[in-house]
Design a protein around this nucleic acid. Structure first.
Lengths: 236, 236
DNA sequence: CTTCAAAGGTGTACAGCGTACACTCAAGGT
DNA sequence: ACCTTGAGTGTACGCTGTACACCTTTGAAG
């Protein structure tokens, strides 16, 4: 009685609020630190209350993916399949990049939820509607794989939080050391913008790298499409 | 005293045996079911004994990756960069496919261990030694990304253990149902070998799909290389 | 307004996890 | 024979997901 005279009657939970809060927490503290208990605490509720809105943690993750996938702006198919597919992939990339953990979670999901299927469906449609054969579209979908979500497997990712605090001259010394063992890696990893004489690269342009690979694939698809390529002739 | 008269003096643990046993267990019961306790039990040792040979579970996973990566047969660089790169990727694929969990684990590792760096190094070297500019090699490495390990992001993966038990006619009915909502997905997913009139596909040839995408990329790299492509002209 | 089922929220409890810390014990070098 | 060093043990802690039984609020029907 006396407890809640000032505060309005407690807002009720619902699935959407659970999912959105989970996404927000994952954005803040990282997906690995998101636990049912942490989430319930943020919602000012006891842990078990969540299970009235979400079957278990796996389904919570599924739901979080749905929230993000629904954020992807649909591409305009009117301009032809190629720019449309390009735009669509880059739109997905924008949405997923707002949630750094999303790549890993999407990849770990085995069951595809409706929103995910909707996205794949409309993406597939871009090629079909663009006149691609079903056969070629099949292979295209395989080839584009995770790239359709707007991410690549990053190779030279954030080298470590700690490294950021290492002074540049030490960093350079470490690099020279490493170059003895891994000359190619070091050469390549530092290839960007080293006109200034430093061997330390300034990091590289993720967006450029992504579009580089994407365009090679799209050009390849286009070429095969123009040639009327079919998988029938290509197999043993 | 009386305990061990028959059995020979207990074999001592070492890092290699820990890692190899961990790999074997993961192969058998899945990576998510591999715990320090389960592993110690298999080695007939108390859980904490493992920590004398491995710093923690993260490093155990790193070590497991090392074991697998060392299994990759090196490619013969004598035949030119293109077949060499192709062979190398397919060799990696063979090694990683023996351990279904390895893809996920490799992708989740942030720190690169020596064996991993060795592999990346030698792979990078194929392009450098093949006359690629460091610049182009850089972009090539980004573009090939996870494919360099021999995997793609699978889209139409194993649809579920349970589905295997569903009788074909039910499966077909489900597909017709789904086709209403996801016509493109269903068309594409069932595009292989349906000359027999059934709309149920017979699954698709992963290896073929993989090589399809790989060759598009390699052809693209070749074209850019022949053109003397550089990233300088391509940026905003 | 009363009644009553359904749905939402609580509390307790359990098995499992990774691992810190203090210990015992066996092997090898002096 | 002694002593150092490292391997293996035992106990304990805080964390996880969630089963199950319980209470409380809600909204509709009588």
């Amino acid at each position: 009685m006396t407890e809640q005279l000032a505060s309005e009657r407690r807002v009720r939970l619902n699935r959407q609020r659970v999912l959105e809060t989970a996404v927000a927490i994952a954005d803040e503290i990282g997906i690995e630190a998101l636990s049912m208990r942490r989430l319930s605490q943020e919602l000012e509720v006891v842990p078990m209350a969540l299970y009235k809105h979400v079957e278990n943690k796996e389904q919570l993750l599924d739901g979080m993916v749905e929230v993000i996938v629904r954020e992807i702006e649909p591409a305009d198919g009117g301009a032809g399949w190629k720019p449309a597919a390009r735009d669509q992939v880059l739109a997905a990339r924008r949405a997923l990049q707002r949630h750094p953990w999303s790549r890993r979670v999407i990849e770990s999901r085995t069951t595809k939820t409706p929103a995910v299927l909707d996205y794949i469906e409309s993406f597939t449609g871009l090629f079909i509607d663009g006149g691609f054969s079903v056969d070629l579209t099949h292979h295209v979908m395989h080839a584009i794989g995770g790239r359709m979500w707007g991410f690549t497997q990053e190779l030279f990712d954030d080298p470590d939080e700690a490294d950021a605090t290492v002074p540049p001259e030490v960093r350079e010394a470490m690099l020279r050391q490493a170059a003895a063992f891994y000359p190619n890696i070091v050469a390549v990893a530092t290839s960007m913008n080293h006109d200034d004489g430093s061997i330390v690269g300034h990091g590289c342009d993720d967006q450029f790298e992504f579009e580089f690979a994407l365009d090679i694939l799209l050009d390849g698809f286009e070429r095969l499409h123009e040639l009327g390529w079919t998988s029938r002739g290509s197999r043993g």
